[in-house]
Simulated assay, not measured.
Amino acid sequence: MAILTPVPVALPDSKEPTKTMVRDIIATFFTKEWPSVDPESLTTSYHATFANGHCPVERPAPTTGTPTEPLKAFIKFHKETGADIEVFRHLVPTKQEEALFCYDYGRSGLGAKVYGFFKTEDGTLGRIDEFLDARNMEPEDVENAIIRADIAKALAMFHAMETTLVKKPVEPFYEAVMNGLKKYHKMDRLKALGKKGGVNVDNLIDYDFAERVKKVVEKLGSLGGKVGWCIHDVQYMNILVKNDPKEGESKIVLIDFEFVMRNYRAFDIGGHFMQKMFKWFDEESKIADCKKYSEEERRHFCEEYAKQWNILTGDSDTGEQVFVESEYGFLLAITFDLHNMLCFMADEDDKDPLNLLGLNRLYDEFVEQYTKLGLEDP
């Protein structure tokens, strides 16, 4: 059980821990070997993101005997704001609920084990997870049929997972998204920021996404779209590819569950297809230099997903059924990213041209898909 444990450490204002702090945090949970580790012998690196900070840690192997405690660990520090976007505040899991979810996920054998959930003396919450020998997935990886099938199976298992989190209806999520999108619709200040950044986003800002989201949700509901636990943030940095998986073991692991909520499974599936076009943490371009997910690849993904979903749930879904759902989920996932980027743009006066170009690409993809599905009024 991921019980909140106090640790005798107070992080500095920067929230970046020293090696001694790292050692003391881990030693709170691993009490035999870690307390005597020389902090200067540790290999650590701290990385800060918008939502969290994280720190992979490695200690030297003992000179004699076999270690009884892990040599490597992964510490995640939750920022106070984290993924706490205003309109989703009442929907996203608390940090303790997220830790419990990760604990359940790790215990299932699908993801990293959670070793401990802690609170520092300065009030920072964090987790110690199993260190995974893996790399972040690249867009080109999904062109490998084996990896693509493993992602499909992993999402099906995630969506159908049994967990201690309360199952909430999906309607409040879309109410929140639509209310947020209405806030930014025709906002002159965002248009002005685009012009300052050298990218015209007027068409995007004037486009009524909220009304169109409503249509998409109604259509997906009429199709009987299935619901499950969705990650929502399915950009490819949140999928790890194992460097040396065991025979018969999945090549991939899903990570980062700040936005885990109940939703149409189509959201994550369509979102996975959409995210192949983007590299949000790239410093040269947010738009990936690769081909789109082909229809053949998407259909293969949906066939593999349906097989795994049916094994877990007893349903008899077809790949075609999942594929049709994913076509609408593609649109819903785009509007989630659009909303969050517009929120950041408005709050931070962001006019980074790379972000603006990414926004316009999302807009273009939405309009193209919406028209293709025959949802636009004649």
Rank of each mutant, 00 (worst) to 15 (best):
E258G: 02
L354Q: 13
R189Q: 11
S285G: 04
L254A: 05
V9A: 08
C290E: 10
D188W: 10
N238L: 09
A27M: 02
K168V: 02
A73N: 06
T163F: 00
R189M: 11
Y207W: 10
W280C: 10
P353V: 09
E325D: 14
M261P: 03
P93A: 01
E69F: 11
L11P: 04
P353H: 11
A176C: 01
L190S: 00
E171Q: 05
V142H: 08
T49D: 06
V241C: 01
K372Q: 14
F50G: 08
R299I: 13
L91D: 00
L11V: 04
T18I: 08
E325M: 07
K76F: 06
L312N: 11
D349P: 05
E138P: 08
L190P: 02
G53K: 03
A176H: 02
L165R: 00
E303H: 13
P8S: 14
G106T: 02
R148M: 14
G123N: 05
C102W: 00
D347Y: 11
M341I: 13
K195N: 05
G116H: 05
K113G: 09
E143L: 14
K242E: 05
C55F: 01
Q321V: 09
S326Q: 06
L125W: 00
L132S: 13
N200L: 06
K76I: 01
D233H: 07
M187R: 14
E97L: 02
P245S: 05
L91Y: 00
P35S: 00
D13M: 11
K196I: 10
T68L: 10
I252A: 05
G198A: 05
P67I: 11
Y46F: 09
V234S: 02
D337M: 10
K292Y: 13
L223Y: 14
I25Q: 04
